[in-house]
């Protein structure tokens, strides 16, 4: 049995509250929809609390992934402002079928975070070693000498590293050009030349200019 768009929205909200422990919205969804999800065994409602079943977990993870991939697509590739990407992403997520989802993920270089910094659950394509072709977003360490583009996002769990990069002006949206990639990575942002090692270069994602 297929689930409807509205039901997917509910699963999405459940993911954010139950799994990511974000603040719960006032209302998770209409009661009839919740009942339908209960019937289709996506959720169980012991007492007052809603819980995701294994099936529900997978469905929720999938829709969250599609939503956030859509956000990345709009933000990185189509240059839509952050405040404007929410609505189209909400609609787009329902359209993305398995195969399209995988190719978008590959195109974006298997991103790990959405533009708002939320985690994108990884899909099959992310773990497989399939050849990545025609990437639009790529980490700085994979750029060729002389290639340029704009910084799409910075991905690091290390706060110190992030702070250092910010201090040097490495911020999303800045134009960047790779000057050299061996023995270290030298790149130019506006009038600053910066050198970093491979580890750091792997954390910076660039939207490549064709």
């Amino acid at each position: 049995m297929e689930i409807t768009n509205e039901e997917e929205e509910i699963l999405e909200r459940l993911w954010e509250t139950l799994i990511e422990k974000k603040k719960a919205p006032k209302k998770i969804g209409r009661n009839d929809l919740l009942n339908k999800l209960k019937e289709s065994k996506h959720i169980i409602i012991p007492k007052d609390k809603i819980k995701l079943t294994e099936k529900g977990y997978e469905a929720a993870q999938s829709v969250i992934r599609r939503h956030r991939l859509a956000e990345r697509l709009f933000y990185d590739v189509l240059n839509i402002r952050k405040s404007k990407i929410e609505k189209p992403s909400c609609e787009f997520e329902h359209v993305l079928s398995g195969e399209v989802e995988e190719s978008i993920c590959t195109l974006l270089g298997h991103p790990k975070e959405c533009p708002h910094g939320n985690q994108i659950p990884s899909g099959k394509c992310c773990s497989s070693n399939s050849e990545i072709i025609n990437k639009i977003v790529s980490s700085l360490s994979e750029l060729k000498k002389g290639q340029s583009g704009k910084i799409a996002y910075i991905l690091t769990q290390n706060h110190k590293k992030l702070q250092k990069l910010m201090a040097l002006g490495v911020l999303p949206g800045k134009p960047i050009k790779l000057i050299q990639n061996f023995p270290s990575y030298v790149f130019q942002i506006q009038h600053t030349q910066i050198v970093i090692d491979k580890d750091m270069a792997e954390d910076i994602y660039i939207k490549i200019r064709k």
Binding site: K161, V186, V195, D197
Partner: peptide, 11 residues
């Protein structure tokens, strides 16, 4: 911890 390297290259 493992050292990391970043540096501005002045003209």
């Amino acid at each position: 911890e493992k050292p990391y390297f970043y540096m501005e290259v002045p003209p």
